[in-house]
């Protein structure tokens, strides 16, 4: 299986590659349209700001490639946020593959922002992507979050419900970091790689 990681300049691209290595998958870091179109699975990681990652995708001329992709695509963290129409972070337009707008976590008494650490996942509907992880905890680090919409398959809670994982057709994303979420993270990545994901 050909897995490619879009190198959008985020600091976690190496960690994501190692996570696949632990699953015996040699995922290549790529920045060109042809490699992305030829892949069986495409990963869009992102650490940093939505504006930074989006600017980098524009620079690489990959925005349209990702928008028109028909292969399974997994956005991670900011990479998932960019699947949506827009983000309040830097007032930036996303890829627009999913309806909705990413906004800042409100925080509040006892609710720190960034939301950082291991937090509980709650399934909002059944999906291959999240098989075996309902009720488990995954590692989150974020200040912005996507709303719980029809595309949400896992919800997180930080004083407000937010989308912890999304799925619509071949488009998927996790707000948490599967590459740093121990067995739970590995399970989600294996689910994404499985033939059942395309069924």
């Amino acid at each position: 299986m050909r897995v490619v990681i879009v190198d959008a300049g985020g600091a976690n691209t190496g960690s994501v590659r190692y996570a696949f290595e632990r699953l015996d998958i040699d995922a290549a870091l790529v920045t060109d349209a042809a490699s992305i179109r030829a892949a069986d699975r495409v990963i869009l990681p992102g650490v940093g700001t939505a504006a930074q990652v989006m600017a980098r995708l524009q620079q690489l001329d990959l925005v349209n490639v990702l928008r028109t992709l028909d292969r399974p695509l997994l956005g991670i963290c900011v990479g998932m946020q960019l699947l949506f129409e827009s983000s309040e972070e830097g007032e930036v337009a996303g890829l627009g593959l999913l309806p909705g707008r990413v906004s800042r976590l409100r925080g509040g008494p006892g609710l720190r922002v960034p939301h950082m650490g291991w937090s509980t996942l709650r399934a909002t509907r059944a999906d291959t992507l999240i098989d075996g992880v309902d009720g488990a905890q995954a590692y989150f680090v974020h200040s912005f979050a996507a709303p719980v919409t029809d595309d949400c398959v896992l919800a997180g809670d930080h004083g407000q419900a937010f989308a912890a994982a999304v799925r619509r057709g071949h488009i998927a994303g996790t707000q948490f970091h599967p590459e740093r979420s121990a067995a739970v993270g590995a399970r989600v990545l294996r689910n994404f790689l499985s033939p059942a994901f395309e069924a």
Binding site: G14, Y18, A19, E21, Y139, E179, S181, A186
Partner: peptide
């Protein structure tokens, strides 16, 4: 740092 990152799946 790279060696640790390769093998560790927690932050």
């Amino acid at each position: 740092v790279e060696r640790v990152s390769r093998l560790i799946d927690i932050p």
